[in-house]
Design a protein around this nucleic acid. Structure first.
Lengths: 332, 332
DNA sequence: GCCACGATCTAGAACGTTCTAGAGTCGTTG
DNA sequence: CAACGACTCTAGAACGTTCTAGATCGTGGC
């Protein structure tokens, strides 16, 4: 059986089993309404004929899409981790995910448009860059859940970590270790950068360290962290809190190349608790976002919206958590 | 307009424009058969009513799925790069991609099953782990193109780099620099590891360096490279060729922590030319797989199979290319 | 004027499945 | 025995779109 050949349909199974198409549908859906003997007979035929449901027909007729569209960016370790959680959460709720990637050569609008045509019941957008107004227009059409970015619009649901709080935790941790000269490598124009930066400033102020406030422009990738590290070399702080884990690894690399000992000479805190930050040779102290909780909440929120439920709070802000590993210690 | 509300259909546009449903379909598909005046009128109505095609209905009725299913692994930088290329290639051929991820908690079979239900015209599998027999059974059902792994079965199409040749290039390059004690950190049970290992052995033998053959078990992730590096520390070779770029970064990290200078004390070659290997602070010498060519060929192969074309060679093996950057130099 | 042809447009059926209403059967109760 | 309820099963329509055959109109040639 190859290209162009028709796949097995419910009608084929029905003919072979000697029952109606509708009854075969009932059996394949495990819906009530068929006897045990009939179920067994139908399932046997379906197995023999290798019947696979046609999700297009199913989605079209049922008028109930159990499909959640997810827009994610390639080369985002954190998005990878979120995808892992989202698949699990969707599965638990009886939903399927359909993914659409944003790549260096495929923009976010294109990614979203594809999902609209698939008639997804809802969209989950991972760190979208689109302006709020655009997201709101989209949310007029179908439920939209944004993850990892604060979107202030009543039509858009948000599941995110308290990024301001996250950076405060980082600064608190460093201050507790005795650090005063604490710098922050921010995320440039990336989603969440402003909140994290604000959290850093607030915490520094809270600890009476205003005069030591120092923000270096960074970004979300390794090279961004590496570049920022080079800007710190002339006058290194005793500690630095970085926008995210990936940038932190770039920064660590450059520090080490310049014979700065971590954490002896300089302590480093990342953000995300991405899977690689746990690796023995990186052992990164970091602010953890609770990925599985976020994924679960995002899917639940999407599903509730689809079901027309009245949702109490359109924005869910999850507390970050400090994960202390090997890249932080007392200043010398 | 929110959840549960019906979306604009061709019938709505037709009623408003005062033409038949079939004519609206012709206009929306830019198919011949409508006058310019009618086209304009219909497009105006469609825009006003915000008509979006329903891809489920379209796919179901047309009997021609222009959908390519792609199975990829999260946390695989190389797969990310391939996705970027595949989206471009598919777009050029008028196909859409639908993605299905393999995660630590969602296995490959599940990923494939989802795509079968979507009635994809063909599947493109990135480095699948499934046994050949399973892939062959799948290929009985629809065209299957495997990327980055050699699958010896006439029903399965393959687009891959000559991995054996790739490692030979790496060894040749190192020998040309004067190295003799060249080790190889392999990919353990990962796809392509055997070919790369064989290429390493062949090249070492070719250069009369049999007695220096040394293979360290590795893997595809950073920690795998880091672990392998630790095994090399007691008796470091002057050079090492690593299974892939990601493992190479892990290995580099450990070498640097142990004050081994790269490339002064030890040269390092990666594999893939992943996007991060080009970063200024990594500057990795590596064996490049030609991502865009691979993506283009895989999509073309899939499309040809869908079209029922007679395909001359089911396996396309692409020559790798040596990319010399800063991690290799003459031995001391 | 008649005929042939091409372009435009329409009506109806089909894609594979689910939904819904109704028919038929069986068992229980009055 | 008749009525009722529960369960099983079926027939037919619907989901939104495309395919296909045919009707209609306009134009050009004879």
């Amino acid at each position: 059986m190859r290209t162009g050949e028709r796949r097995t349909t419910l009608a084929d199974v029905a003919a072979e089993a000697g029952v109606s198409v509708a009854l075969v549908s009932i059996v394949m859906r495990a819906a009530p309404g068929a006897s045990a003997a009939t179920r067994q007979r139908v399932l046997e035929v379906a197995r023999r004929l290798d019947y696979q449901p046609d999700s297009r027909a199913r989605l079209l007729r049922s008028g109930e899409s159990r499909l959640l569209g997810v827009v994610f960016g390639v080369r985002h370790p954190f998005h990878d981790d979120l995808l892992t959680g989202l698949y699990d959460a969707a599965d638990k709720q009886g939903y399927e995910l359909t993914l659409s990637a944003v790549t260096p050569r495929r923009d976010e609008r294109t990614a979203i448009a594809g999902l609209l045509q698939d008639r997804c019941a809802a969209l989950i957008l991972l760190g979208p860059l689109a302006p709020t107004a655009e997201l709101a227009t989209l949310a007029d059409r179908l439920p939209v859940v944004v993850m990892t970015r604060a979107v202030r619009h009543r039509a858009v649901d948000v599941v995110r970590t308290d990024d301001s709080r996250g950076l405060q935790l980082a600064v608190d941790h460093l201050v507790e270790l005795g650090h005063r000269r604490i710098a922050h490598v921010d995320g440039a124009r990336w989603v969440a950068s402003a909140d994290r930066r604000q959290g850093y400033r607030d915490a520094m102020r809270r600890h009476g360290l205003d005069e030591f406030v120092r923000v270096i422009p960074g970004g979300s990738g390794e090279e961004d962290g590496a570049r920022a590290a080079r800007l710190l070399l002339d006058d290194p702080p005793t500690a630095v809190a970085v926008f995210n884990d990936l940038a932190a690894t770039g920064l660590l690399d450059v520090l080490r190349r310049h014979d700065l000992d971590v954490p002896g000479d300089i302590s480093v805190v990342g953000y995300d608790d991405s899977s690689f930050s746990r690796l023995a040779h990186i052992d990164l102290t970091t602010v953890a976002q609770d990925i599985d909780t976020m994924a679960t909440l995002a899917v639940s929120r999407a599903v509730e919206r689809v079901a027309g439920a009245h949702v109490a709070h359109r924005e869910t802000v999850i507390a970050p958590r400090m994960v202390i590993r090997g890249t932080t210690g007392p200043p010398r």
